[in-house]
Structure formats: C-alpha cells, structure tokens
Design a protein around this nucleic acid. Structure first.
Lengths: 122, 122
DNA sequence: TCTTTGAGTCACCAAAAGTAACTAAAGAAC
DNA sequence: GTTCTTTAGTTACTTTTGGTGACTCAAAGA
C-alpha cells in the first residue's frame, strides 16, 4: 500500500486496515483468538474462566463478532443446561501467525515501553 | 506463551499483549504509524490532511500516546505559527514489519469477511 | 419443592471517542 | 493599523462503546 492508497482508505468503511483493526483492536478479541488457538475447542464457560476478568456480556459480544467475521465457529448442542462450543475456522487460523508477530514484539518491548511511559509522565 | 501464561496475564496491566493491543488497537495509531513510515518526517497538519477524517483532538491524543511509548519522536521548532515534526523512532520502526503482516492479511481477507458479515446478519 | 447449571439477555452506569468552537502570536494583505 | 491567515494545539459538550449485576429458561439432582 502506498501513501495515496492509505489516504484513500483512511476515511472509508472500505479500509481493510480499519476493518481488521476495529475487530482485533477491541478489548478482548485478540485474547479470545489466542486462547482458542491453545484450547482448540472450548465451551463458553471455559473461555470465561480462562480470561477471568471478562464479563459474560462482553464475551457474548466478542464471540458473536468473531463468528460474524468467520473467524470462529459456534456449535450448539441442543441440551439443557445448554452446551455451546467454539473453535477457530481456517480463516481464524490464518490470522494467528500475524498476531503472534505482534505478541512477540510486545513481550520483547514491554519493559522499555513501560520505562518510556514513566519518563514521559514526568 | 502457553495457556497458563496467557491466563495469568489476562487480568493484569502487566499483560504485554494487552499493553500493545491497547495502544495499537485504538482507532488511529496504526494508521498514523503506517503513514509516518511512508512520510518519514511529517508535520502535524500534514498528518491530519493525509488521514482526513481524524479530528485535531484525536490526532493530538494519538501522537502523544505514541510519543509516550517511544514509538514516535516529536520535534518542536520555536516559531510562530508553530512547527512540530513527527517521525518514527527505532522502536517504532521495529514494530512496523509486524503491522504489515496484519495489513496484508486484512487486504487479502477483507472481501470474504464482508461476505461473512452479510450472511451472518441475515 | 428448592437449588444448581450454562449460555446467554436486559437495564443501567462509566469511560472513551468524536465534534465544534476557541486560543496564541506573528506575518501578510488591505 | 486593523483584519485575515496560519499552526498546533485545548476546552466544553455529545455520542458511542465498554462494563456491571441482576435476570431468564428448562432440566436434573437433593
């Protein structure tokens, strides 16, 4: 993408960058995707217990969005109490290597970034 | 990062994933970083004109955050009207390849994702 | 009959993002 | 010598997003 293309995209819903970042960049999606990669198939409650600080509502919203984008597949077993399983789709799996790149960078640079923030605050 | 580590990080400000995603995942940071990579050195107004839909306030906030994290360097020329230049630091540059991975995936998958969303809505 | 269970939804409150109008001070235009 | 323009912001206000706790449904177990 050159500069013109970037500019062209910057204001539109057409922008691929914005489309992905809006989805990945929310508070929970990335964490859920990384978790599903480990867990392969997980139930709603399993995911919630793993993430701990996520509320039921936000997990519902997050999973629905990931499903809508075809990154996660939802399987309902018609039982009571309900049983719903989630797993990555092929598309979801294809995204993960790129996320790992970010995560690796994050882990490597986190301490320096924290230092910078401290200095900047003073 | 294995599952336990992920879980451990999930609730804390210590979480490197969250730390990076919180910064990169906001509405504008990624776009500004990609733009600065192209432009090398840019003034405040140049960036705003390039992104078009960003407000002055949000650009100020975004640049300040990127500066605080040591991803972008700010140079003020004591003139009136003011002149302030922004450019990537080495740390900022080191992040960009990982962002390109994401952007490439986004461009490749955008159409399919849009299709999925349409189907899901119905 | 009463409680527990899993996967949600609903009404409400807090935080973040967005908007429009404002500021400062110099130089140019009239 | 008053007015206009320019740049990089800030401020007050509104809207959108995120988060919380209580609630639901229907079956199984005590």
């Amino acid at each position: 993408m050159d500069k013109k293309e970037l500019t062209k995209y910057s204001n539109a819903e057409q922008c691929p960058v914005r489309n992905v970042v809006d989805r990945i960049g929310d508070k929970w999606s990335l964490l859920v995707l990384l978790l599903l990669e480990e867990g392969e198939v997980m139930r709603f409650m399993e995911i919630q217990k793993a993430i701990e600080t996520i509320s039921q509502k936000m997990l519902t919203v997050t999973l629905k969005a990931l499903e809508a984008d075809g990154l996660v597949e939802r399987t309902v077993y018609p039982q009571i109490p309900p049983k719903v399983e989630y797993k990555l789709t092929e598309r979801g799996k294809s995204l993960l290597p790129h996320l790992h790149g970010l995560v690796t960078w994050a882990v490597e640079n986190m301490n320096n970034i924290r230092e910078s923030r401290k200095q900047f605050a003073s």
